[in-house]
Design a protein around this nucleic acid. Structure first.
Lengths: 241, 241
DNA sequence: TCTCCACATATTGTACACAATATCGAAAGG
DNA sequence: CCTTTCGATATTGTGTACAATATGTGGAGA
């Protein structure tokens, strides 16, 4: 028994674990960019042989996170600002479509979740601003932790909408496209203005979804993604991420 | 030397060949749908070991052509008409975006190619109609061959536009999404009316691209994809493909 | 000093062997 | 006659060994 049925694409076998390990390493900024992924090294880190590592790398290459060069191995995919622009161009239409279809299909439970996620992000934003107003009260660690929560909540928010589109292919496409710039993403949340804009747009999106206004949902979501692109690109050229 | 550099994702190693072999088998309708892909069997067919076969299957799963169930192997992904609808929903926005960006970036050589591809498809359509008017002159084989050419030319047409979008990620996304319903696709071309509509829309798209009208290009392309969806779905419920 | 070539090393690509798991059929029990 | 359980078979999952290929280093020659 142990209902192995509705497992989706997340295989419970070792290969899946290896793939997740590599993904998280990449997304957390280790390895790269342009870092080489040596199979034997990863294999030893996880205490498995190279076989599942190779398979995981093949999967991750198909997802676009790494590039595999024949006989030379895998390296983390690098992103110029030009590529970031293009990834967000793609993401805009994908999540735009997701929002449009979500407006037609979303249920009460999902709307509730969106509400609470939006509320949580607003709470975290308030806390961050207060901590900023009275400095010294909280360490840098608490700040980073809150930003991490913000990133997670934001991810959940977007994922909920994509799931509500009821289109599994779209879901996979978005996941592939979204995870790319995640390395850079945390940096979008350090400035209060951008957090405020994000929260405002999230509320607008929820309202559109609630009233079933698919056109408006798509429009706002698309603009929301473009906004995110602008933030990333500005950070890229100003601060050097 | 032998410039191995700009090889993109098409690895020249054995795994790539194996993957192409499996893909074409699936796309040609062997194996499935719901057909099981036994690793050892495929390995023997190609005279290689199971190792590269397994890797190829992992890649193809990430592309969405097959589903791999832990300890139970890979089966060809099945498509209900509901899923076809969703795949085309996705394809519409992807190729719509491609057309929009292509209108901004396409060069003369690509426009020339689009013109000649459109012309070739019109020629093939004429020949098919003439062969239909005076039956018996050509065998069924010649008919099927022309349809195959039509499918190829159509593929090239769409691919040229996607390539002209100058967005590699988008290109990969489209490839993954497009190859899915390709099994069904040949059936769209058997009826003269649909061929005529297709050719007309192709010409409209080329004109929009030529004049750099990105909005119009996106609009027509999107409608073109929806049209294709309608044809497939009609075929599915009428004839039973 | 610079260039080119050969060799040593590291890493990937593939084959094969064995263990783990699922599937199918048959026999036993109700 | 139907259901359940056990075992034989087939297939997948992983480890290991070896071959193929790239990379880096040192020396010989101009």
């Amino acid at each position: 028994m142990t209902k192995p049925g509705v497992n989706g694409s997340s295989k419970k076998t070792g290969v899946g674990d290896v793939a997740n390990y590599i993904r998280s390493k990449i997304l957390l900024g280790e390895y790269g960019p342009d870092g080489r992924l040596v199979e034997d090294q990863i294999a030893k880190e996880l205490g498995v042989s190279r076989t599942p590592v190779r398979q995981a790398l093949a999967t991750i290459e198909a997802e676009g996170l790494v590039e595999i060069f024949p006989n030379r191995g895998a390296i983390v995919a690098a992103f110029s600002s030009d590529e970031v622009w293009k990834v967000y161009d793609l993401r805009a239409v994908l999540e735009g479509l997701a929002a449009r279809r979500a407006a037609e299909n979303i249920d009460e439970a999902e709307l509730d979740q969106l509400h609470s996620l939006a509320a949580e992000m607003e709470r975290l934003d308030r806390e961050l601003r207060e901590a900023n107003a009275s400095p010294g009260r909280l360490g840098r660690g608490a700040h980073k932790e809150r930003v991490r929560c913000l990133v997670n909540a934001n991810q959940d928010f977007h994922h909920t909408i994509v799931a509500a589109s009821r289109n599994h292919r779209l879901e996979k496409s978005v996941r592939r496209t979204v995870q790319i710039p995640m390395v850079l993403k945390a940096f979008s949340w350090y400035r209060p203005v951008e957090r405020a804009v994000t929260n405002y747009q999230h509320r607008k999106i929820v309202r559109a979804l609630e009233s079933g206004d698919s056109q408006r949902a798509e429009l706002v979501m698309t603009e929301h993604i473009y906004e995110g692109r602008d933030v990333i690109l500005r950070a890229l050229e100003e601060d050097r991420i």
